[in-house]
Amino acid sequence: MRVLGKVAGFSLLLTLVFTGVANLLPQVQGEPPEETTIDVSSLTMADFTRLGEKLFTGKGTCALCHNNMGRAPDLLALNVVDTSASRISAEGYEGDAVDAASYIRESMTEPSAYVVPGFGKKGTDDQISPMPPVNQAPIQLSQMEMDAIIAFLESKDGHDVTVALPTARLEPAPEPANDSAAEPAVSGETATAADLLMNYGCTACHSILDSEVDIGPDLRTVGARLTTEQIRQSIIDPMSVIADGYEPMMPDYFVDELTIKELEAIVKFLESQNG
């Protein structure tokens, strides 16, 4: 029994030493990326570039490599706009960019379009970039967030920001743009709610407008059943509430594809559908 006590005491003491070391080190908590909810109506360009800077060090994880430690070009030290111009005109550049903004965007979504010599993946002779496309998992920046980062990179060296604020434009959905006939209908101010419902395929599952299907709940009476807030929620996060008798199968990517104006147009149209 004496041995047991001694042994237990010794082991406990050693464990406490390790715990002590862990508690002596700087205590930092790693937060998940914040879900950026911005009030687009009152957004100024200064706010937008600040958001870009936050995304650069935060959710975008750009600063993990783009810093002064030599893993990737140090974007904070470089004059990004001037550098972009020389990259586009450089021999061996085969991308589609025409100006700084489109070059930065291309670098973010297709990192291997142009690999800065010395920064390629090992063994690929600078043909393949080790950088992940930032618009895909796990980073998953939205178009607006990428715009904010471009705005930040342009403004930090005193250049004019060439990307537009999110309120001032409606761009085509970034997803499959191969259906060229449908595109004009969803982009631009003229898109009506009816066009949107057709183009985003709502009519494939829901009874609305001319369609008669019962895969998802009937939307011709939705205004009577749900509040405006609930309608919006059902589009943004379809899995949050599942209507009785239906399978939870509505895709959840509309939140990424719809612009704010489009979403509001649909919501407004649907809330008027009360039988």
């Binding site: 464990t15 070391v21 862990a22 930092v28 790693g30």
Partner: peptide, 19 residues
């Protein structure tokens, strides 16, 4: 709990489990 806790917190958890 989807954040990375501080080292101290993690260390305390490890000690609890080890003990």
């Amino acid at each position: 709990d989807n954040f990375i806790p501080t080292i101290g917190y993690a260390g305390n958890m490890m000690t609890i489990v080890t003990v």
